[in-house]
């Protein structure tokens, strides 16, 4: 394949600006890495509290991503295929969690599902308490992370059109079979990148989790909360926070690299 670098298509000032931007992104992370040494890092990362937080983070983020996929794909399909005007009316509500401060999202969830909330009261009567449980962590993560998946998949569905689905229908396929065998494979790249964004957002989720699920070790203290606790907590040294933060960065990078490799195959 010929890969020509044609002069005159990309402005010359793009390269220096891009380099500065990269530096701006990398510098804080390098500063973080320079703040600690290997011994502290190993000690902090292998501590039971850290392993507990990482396990909880990965578990809840994976669960939240799976739920986002199951709930978000149908929503994306509806927004892409329903009449344009209706979709335009509904889309802002889907995107709202993206623009709200996560703290507000947590507050909203608490008011809905808390003991005195309209739904929470009803759940409490049935003996179900959501706030400050691991389930609450997952709910908070789904709430803030799902829009990434919906936006990504809806865009792909719109740009691909429904020609393939129409052909599948004329071949006798029922709607559910069409979605499973034609629609999902058609938007698979967008779905994959949407899932990745969703997982990354869930993994880093802090504000809504802190508000709605609290910060109980083992049940709701995910990595971001553990970092916050280590940094702010009395008697705990800040090196542990740095080490945990680095660990989270490494996990995020690994997930992204793994996904990039998979999608190239």
């Amino acid at each position: 394949m010929v890969r020509a670098r044609v002069p005159g298509l990309v402005p010359v000032w793009v390269a220096p600006v891009a380099a500065v931007t990269l530096l701006c992104v990398a510098a804080p992370l390098l500063a973080l890495a320079g703040r600690t040494d290997a011994a502290t890092l190993v000690a902090a990362v292998t501590s039971p509290a850290a392993r507990q937080a990482l396990t909880l983070s990965l578990g809840t983020a994976l669960t939240a991503t799976a739920i986002s996929c199951l709930l978000g794909f149908p929503l994306a399909l509806a927004l892409a295929r329903w009449p344009t005007r209706l979709a335009a009316l509904l889309r802002p509500f889907v995107l709202l969690p993206l623009v709200l401060p996560p703290l507000v999202s947590g507050l909203a969830l608490l008011f809905l599902l808390g003991r005195r909330g309209p739904v929470g009261r009803w759940l409490a009567e049935a003996g179900i308490t959501l706030p400050f449980t691991t389930t609450a962590v997952v709910i908070a993560q789904v709430f803030v992370a799902m829009p990434f998946l919906v936006v990504s998949v809806e865009g792909a569905l719109r740009s691909k059109g429904d020609g393939h689905e129409a052909v599948a229908a004329t071949l006798g396929a029922r709607p559910t079979r069409i979605v499973a065998t034609v629609t999902v494979p058609l938007v698979a790249p967008a779905l994959r990148s949407g899932l990745l964004l969703c997982f990354a957002r869930a993994l880093g989720e802090f504000g809504a989790t802190a508000m709605f699920a609290g910060n109980a070790p083992g049940t709701t203290r995910t990595m971001p909360l553990a970092i916050y606790t280590a940094f702010n907590g009395a008697g705990v040294d800040k090196d542990a926070a740095v080490a945990l933060a680095l660990e989270l960065v490494v996990v995020a990078v690994l997930v992204m690299v793994a996904s990039a490799v998979r999608s190239k195959r």
């Binding site: 020609g163 393939h164 129409a166 052909v167 599948a168 229908a169 004329t170 071949l171 006798g172 396929a173 029922r174 709607p175 065998t181 034609v182 494979p185 058609l186 698979a188």
Partner: peptide, 21 residues
Amino acid sequence: TAPYRRGIGYLGQDPHVFGHL
């Protein structure tokens, strides 16, 4: 009725092959 109930084949300008299959 839905297209899948009609038993009508459709061939358009874009072949719309299922690329993943």
